[in-house]
Design a protein around this nucleic acid. Sequence first.
DNA 1: CAACGACATGTAGAAGTTGACACGTGACGG
DNA 2: CCGTCACGTGTCAACTTCTACATGTCGTTG
Lengths: 218, 218
Amino acid sequence: MSLRYALLGLLADEAGSGYELTKRFERSLDRYAWHAKHNQVYQELNRLAADGLAEVVEEGARGRKTYAITEAGRADLRHWLLNPPRTPVVRNEFVLRLFLLFALDPKEARSVLADYAAAVQRDLDALTALVESANFDPHDGVLPDPLAFGHLAAGFGLHMLPASRDWAQWAITQIDNQTGEDAGHEGARETGTSGGDGSAEDGGATKGSGAVEETPGS
Amino acid sequence: MSLRYALLGLLADEAGSGYELTKRFERSLDRYAWHAKHNQVYQELNRLAADGLAEVVEEGARGRKTYAITEAGRADLRHWLLNPPRTPVVRNEFVLRLFLLFALDPKEARSVLADYAAAVQRDLDALTALVESANFDPHDGVLPDPLAFGHLAAGFGLHMLPASRDWAQWAITQIDNQTGEDAGHEGARETGTSGGDGSAEDGGATKGSGAVEETPGS
DNA sequence: CAACGACATGTAGAAGTTGACACGTGACGG
DNA sequence: CCGTCACGTGTCAACTTCTACATGTCGTTG
């Protein structure tokens, strides 16, 4: 049912057509919150309209239909937002891959982590640039209104991306410490596999006594 | 196909039965990486065996079948780990809900955020306690081996949970600033809705000029 | 030894998601 | 005015996941 509420949420922000909503979906929710394809969006909009939670408020060129949320839709969305389930579903193929890295040998795992950290850094740079340019088109990214949809999402990225990158770098130091300790003959040299560019290297951190360390505290 | 690789990953760590793998799944992958139900696990194990990626190495009491990964399975997993897709799928009902908070009025949104921050803090406390008790049963959580599965996952939690909590607190200050500025008559009082306990309140932070601020830098 | 709860594995149908394809429209350049 | 490309909406079959149900076992307790 999450897709339904994702769409109701977007409609609560502003009415729009399937095509337009698909684009907004990709811009805002897709990365961290929820993924959906355009055909799913169209189908769900039809269902939303059938259930009276949204309605067609305009029909334009090329069969374009603009949907708006109804009062019933707002009430339903509100109820969903205020009643979180005990165990929400999380599916993240990124993270899954990272968690399973132990199945590779250390230098391969190190390479994947370095690539990941670099990619996260690129995302972060892009987001930072977007946020700092502070006066964007409201339809193109973050809104100036601090309560608005894009603002919360941007803040989320600005908090989570560094943490994600730092974790990857921490994991790299764990690997380096490990290979340096009990396999000192092939530890910390350039890896090469899958095009790692080494741009995510971390200085320091040569301790490491076995337990989890060097993590941000509570 | 992610479930398939999640299971191959767990099997690469250690052989196990469907029941046991389901438990390991819930303990390790479920929270951040991938969610699956027990019946899905059993079905996928059958398919894995049919495809030669896993095999039954032992049949015990109560029809219990212990599966182990095969060489083909290891190769397949390795290939998957080393070849990430351009756009992995992310679905997180938690985050979706948080992103759509703008559809509530400020005090309700504030309450949900406070609840969320408190819940994250509880998770973090639990994880910290687990990690600090440093000598757990290897089958019960984090392994002492720094490269091992649970270790990377625990480190992930220790990095991401504080960021997540901090984001929620940041969002709360954004709401407080907003309501304090242009609706000063009903801004920062106790909310009550859905049982917020206020334990995640943040002192300070009364600035706020419209753009995204007070976020960890690059 | 009967009852009971945790263990352990599964099936069936419905709902959600994916990937590929299909088809008409409007704008714009040549 | 013709081709082409982005726009815009949709269908369909295959696959994945969810909810609910079904079935039997082992160990413990009364």
